[in-house]
Structures are given as structure tokens and as C-alpha cells.
Amino acid sequence: MLQIESLKQFYGESHTLWDLSMTIPAGECTCVMGRNGVGKTTLMECIMGLLPLHTGALRFQGHDLARLPAERRAGLGIGYVPQGRQIFPLLTVEENLRIGLPARADRRRQLPEVIFELFPVLDEMRARRGGDLSGGQQQQLAIARALVIDPTLLILDEPTEGIQPNIVHEIGDIIRRLMDQLGLTVILVEQKLPFARRVGDRFAILDRGRLKAEGAMTELGDDLVREYLTV
């Protein structure tokens, strides 16, 4: 699905990703984990094309992503839900959703009904401004906006951050449904270990910009948690 090979990235003089290589298998949820500031969001932004690569390669379903702008990557089927949601607060729910339509490969101009099946609250609030929604509702809107493009790969950067527990559980159910029923592949950046264990199939741990461990979620033992995940 997605191949990351020897990726390096810098912020000015600061080296943020070091020769990072990993494979994201199709149809599974890979949880990218690690403490704050280890390069998780930087990696997601490199995959999406929001940050340039210094060296390395990114290949998605046979396409070389290295020089493609973010909008072209969206058109290939990569959906992105950034940390902090970044919805448009002065636009309505429906207007926020429609922003994603031009990136669809089929050029469809109607919002997919599956969006409102997954998030019925958004159907009820189509005319409400995004900034008037609760934090949990805004997160649902951010995920729905990414799904509008009909992605095959969905990147979620800490979707449970600042969200009430009942909505966190609902988001977990939706992620599993997207994979089980729609066949999506998911990259999930997550710090809540119980949520990651419940939703994820695989884990990849970063530390100081390097990949330190990866494998099936069942292989994430207490020793790795203590060394790389506890604060």
C-alpha cells in the first residue's frame, strides 16, 4: 500500500526524521506511536506532501509521491485528518464537507450518503457553522471531510485528543467499520494506549525521529511501553 524508504527530513538545522523506512500494509490500521516531539506529525505531513523530503522515497500503490503536491496525493486516494482538526469555523458543516469534492478522482459533486450514515449528527447539523460544534462533533466533521474524497488510505493524527470518552469510543468503532466494511487502510497517530490496542492491527514506535520497533499489536509488550511510551 505505502512504502517509506530511507526518509530524512529537517526543520532548519534540526534533523527530525532519520533514515526512516517502513511499510504500511493494505487493509490494516497501523498505529504510529511515541512520546511528544519524536516526529510522528512530521512523518504524516511528509506523507501528505505538506512538508518536503530531504532525501528518501515514498511510494503509494505504485505512484512515486516524492514530488507530488498535497492536492495530487489527495486525488490518488490519500485522506488526511490533521492534529487539531483544522475545520473552517465560519463555514457550515455542509460547506466544510464540500471542500473535499474537487479532489475526488471521479469528479462527483454529490456528498456520499455513507458520510451521513457514519455520522448522523452531521446530517442534522448541515447548516450549522463548524465553529459552533462541540469538540467531538468537530472531530467527526474532520474525519467526514477526509472521507468525502473516497480515500483508500486514511491518515488520522491524534483523533482522540481532547475528545469526550463516548465520542472516543464511537470514533474507534467508525475506524474499524471503515476497514472491515469499506476496505480502507488507516495510519493512526495515537498516544492513548488502550485506544491504540483496541483499534490497531500493527504498531510502529518512533523515538527522536527514528523507527525503534514495529510489529503486530499483540507484540506490543510492557518493555516497549515502558521504554518508549510512558511519560
Rank of each mutant, 00 (worst) to 15 (best):
L153P: 12
R129A: 02
R35E: 01
I175Y: 07
T152I: 07
E227M: 13
G49I: 00
I78S: 14
L154P: 02
G75R: 15
T55P: 00
G130K: 10
A57K: 15
E71T: 00
I99R: 00
T23E: 13
A216L: 09
M1V: 04
A144G: 10
K192A: 00
V168F: 02
G49V: 02
Q83M: 11
T92Q: 05
A142E: 08
L76I: 08
R59K: 13
I24E: 09
R108V: 08
G27I: 04
T152M: 12
E161L: 10
L7H: 02
T218G: 05
D123N: 12
G183V: 15
W18S: 10
M125L: 12
L65V: 08
M179I: 14
A146M: 13
L91R: 10
A66C: 13
R85Y: 06
R210G: 10
R98I: 04
M217D: 08
L147T: 10
M33H: 05
L101D: 07
A144P: 06
V114R: 13
L68C: 12
I47C: 06
L206K: 05
L188R: 07
F88N: 12
T16K: 04
D157T: 05
P120N: 01
E28T: 07
R226Q: 08
G135Q: 06
T42C: 14
T16E: 10
R226F: 03
L65Y: 08
E28Y: 07
G49R: 02
P102Y: 02
L153Y: 11
G79N: 09
R35F: 01
L118Q: 10
Q137S: 01
L2A: 11
N36P: 12
P194V: 06
Q83K: 00
A196S: 08
L118R: 10
A216P: 00
R126S: 14
A127R: 03
L7C: 01
A144D: 03
R202M: 11
R128A: 11
L184A: 05
G62T: 03
F60T: 00
L133G: 01
N96L: 14
A74V: 01
R145S: 01
V231D: 01
E214M: 15
D150F: 00
L141I: 06
L90W: 06
L211V: 09
G215K: 10
T30F: 02
L141G: 04
G135T: 08
V186P: 12
R197K: 14
G130M: 03
Q137D: 01
K40C: 09
L76K: 13
E219I: 12
F195V: 06
Q86T: 11
V189M: 11
V148W: 11
I167F: 01
L68V: 03
I171Y: 04
I205T: 06
P69Y: 00
G221C: 05
W18E: 05
L182G: 03
D132Y: 12
G12R: 02
R67D: 05
E170W: 06
T42A: 14
E214K: 15
G75I: 14
R98Q: 12
L43K: 07
C46T: 03
H54G: 09
K212N: 09
P102Q: 09
R128Y: 02
E214A: 15
D19H: 15
F10N: 02
L188Y: 08
D123R: 13
S134Q: 09
R202N: 11
H54T: 13
L53W: 04
M125G: 02
S6Y: 02
T30W: 05
F195M: 13
G200N: 03
F203K: 15
T152W: 12
E117D: 15
Y80F: 15
N36K: 09
Q137I: 00
F195W: 03
A57P: 02
